[in-house]
Nucleic acid binder design. Structure first.
Length: 247
DNA sequence: CGCCAGGTGGGAT
DNA sequence: ATCCCACATGGC
């Protein structure tokens, strides 16, 4: 990593100061959790080591359900699955895909996502142990139909606790406006940049991604509201969009 | 009515 | 490689 004072760390500090601890990934099952998006949850090792197989599955299912959808809609579908006792490998592998689709209807793309959940469940079921690190888990995830780089990295980061920076539309938008990343940069380009500029720390990456989402929803929206933006002094957009660097 | 939301795969260029 | 599109509900 670049140990010099860097803007990426400065952005993390400012977002953290402005919004506070976000506490992803929210797990309904975690003791002390107030539920999805509650304040009580923290990733390991704070709350006790690796996630259980059940928790890992829940992270994976959540990551799929929230694809290009609000967490609110994904959460409704996740709760519907839990209520019906479907948040386990056996159930996901037994249920008819069409029936599964109906259960997760609220998160959109339900036909595709039902198939994606089955694919994920099959893969997890094939593993000797969920947390087996002998295999290249990222490659295994990317091999599945319906799991792309962001979903794979979300599962690796929030499920397995591995330091993979999760890049999404929000992160791209914020970093592009800040002038750190060129317009139209690929997933890999943005991720490589983050991996080079930040210490490789799963806790940091997890909280950073959550803060980016929060900031993008609150201030750095499609049409940005820069009033009171905590990044004003480090953002090219905030200093005047015309002055931003270009690729 | 329109646009957006914590993407991805498939097909065409 | 890169662009374009379908996939779909819920909120504003």
């Amino acid at each position: 990593m670049n140990t010099e004072h860097n803007t990426l760390l400065e952005i993390f500090r400012r977002l953290g100061k402005a919004y506070g601890y976000q506490g992803w990934w929210p797990l309904q099952t975690r003791a002390g959790s107030k539920g999805y998006n509650g304040e009580g949850y923290r990733l390991s090792p704070e709350v006790g080591g690796e996630l259980s197989d059940e928790e890992l599955l829940e992270v994976g299912v959540g990551a799929v359900l929230t694809q290009n959808t609000t967490w609110k809609n994904a959460r409704t579908a996740l709760i519907a699955l839990r209520t019906r006792g479907l948040l386990n490998l056996d159930s996901l592998l037994r249920i008819e895909t069409g029936e599964l689709a109906e259960v997760i209807r609220s998160c959109g793309y339900y036909n595709q996502k039902a198939q994606k959940l089955v694919e994920l469940a099959r893969m997890l079921g094939r593993l000797p142990q969920a947390g087996d690190h002998r295999v290249d888990m990222r490659a295994e995830l990317l091999r599945l139909w319906g799991i792309g780089p962001e979903t794979a990295d979300s599962i690796l980061l929030y499920g397995f606790g591995e330091p993979h920076f999760v890049v999404d539309a929000y992160g791209k938008r914020i970093f592009t406006r800040a002038g750190l990343v060129v317009e139209g940069a690929s997933y890999r380009e943005v991720q490589d940049f983050c991996h080079h500029m930040l210490p490789s720390d799963a806790e940091l990456f997890g909280e950073y991604h959550a803060l980016l989402v929060r900031h993008a929803q609150q201030s750095c929206r499609t049409v940005p509201d820069c009033s009171g933006c905590p990044l004003r002094n480090v953002c090219a957009f905030g200093r005047g969009w015309e002055g931003r660097p270009k690729g």
